[in-house]
């Protein structure tokens, strides 16, 4: 496939990442598997490793429109298919505003329903599926498998004309059921190693000098290797930190008690205390 050529069919399509989203070989392989086998891609990994951005990158690379379903603790599987607004209908029936006999007016498709009903292929992101109740993934099994569901109220069937590319992210707050896992292609996004991180930083802050990036990365990985931390800094925190350093015009950093903008990297009080404890006494004493 030629770089940048618009993809019409999925046959032989290979995911290569985008300009601003760099991938590893294993991730590309997992995306290709999911697309070729038409199975949902389940992505797990540490917070801040770019799970959600992956769906955007796939949408951008394939040219399909992205639909996002943000799952919350109160979300039910039914919400993704369609919602029947019974209360509105009851209300309307009291005042005779609308023709309440037409039940279709009160049925709204959810993100999954929309992706099925769309005339062309969509990329559907089901974000943070583990936030919902334990039974949530199980309730979606049939719909994701068969790519169709029935609207009970109207007895109509919504069938996917083309199977959407489904990307599911999980933060591992709950275990997902086995039956659900078996239907997914799984990928665990590892924390980027130094080479990849260097490339990621270059994409976001191309104007920083190599020496500066090198120093910052050393500090960053040293900090991550510091085992007493409860929450280790992640990619997005590194990017923010570099932005802060840049705007303050700081051109060299080293890991000591005077590390600038430490708050951008460490977000927990205990972590900051542990940091001060570890590196504080190394600071040169000034009279």
């Amino acid at each position: 496939m030629k770089a940048g050529a618009p993809v019409v069919t999925l046959q032989g399509m290979r995911f290569k990442g985008t300009e601003s989203y760099l991938t590893s070989e294993s991730l590309r392989s997992a995306v290709d598997c999911a697309v070729a086998l038409q199975r949902p891609l389940l992505v797990k990994g540490e917070p801040g490793t770019g799970k959600t951005l992956l769906a955007e990158a796939i949408a951008k690379a394939t040219g399909f429109q992205l639909l996002t379903w943000n799952v919350k603790s109160t979300t039910k599987a039914q919400d993704g298919l369609y919602v029947y607004d019974a209360v509105q209908r009851l209300h309307d029936s009291r005042f005779n505003d609308k023709d309440v006999r037409d039940i279709r007016q009160y049925i709204r498709l959810g993100p999954l329903g929309e992706a099925f009903a769309a005339p062309e292929r969509r990329v559907l992101l089901i974000d943070e599926i583990d936030k919902a109740d334990l039974e949530f993934p199980n309730d979606l099994l049939h719909e994701i498998d068969r790519m169709r569901f029935r609207v009970i109220e109207t007895d109509e069937e919504v069938v996917a004309k083309v199977r959407p590319i489904v990307v599911i992210t999980s933060n591992n707050e709950k275990d997902l059921p086995d039956a659900f896992l078996r239907r997914c292609v799984f990928h665990f996004i590892e924390f980027p190693d130094r080479d990849l991180m260097q490339r990621i930083v270059d994409v976001h802050h191309p104007e920083l000098s190599d020496a500066m990036v090198d120093q910052a990365l050393s500090v960053f990985y040293e900090l991550r290797a510091f085992t007493r931390l409860r929450k280790r800094p992640s990619t997005s925190e590194l990017i923010d930190w570099l932005a802060a350093l840049k705007s303050a015009g700081i051109s060299n950093v080293k890991l000591d008690a005077q590390l600038p903008f430490i708050g951008a990297l460490l977000k927990r009080e205990q972590d900051l205390m542990a940091f001060a404890d570890q590196f504080g006494n190394r600071a040169p004493k000034r009279a």
């Binding site: 392989s29 997992a30 598997c33 896992l181 799984f186």
Partner: peptide, 20 residues
């Protein structure tokens, strides 16, 4: 999908066989 290489096979197999 594995590009006829053992490394390609490693990634494809891992994506499909491991769920956790």
């Amino acid at each position: 999908l594995h590009d006829s290489s053992l490394e390609g096979f490693y990634f494809v197999a891992r994506a499909l066989l491991v769920h956790d």
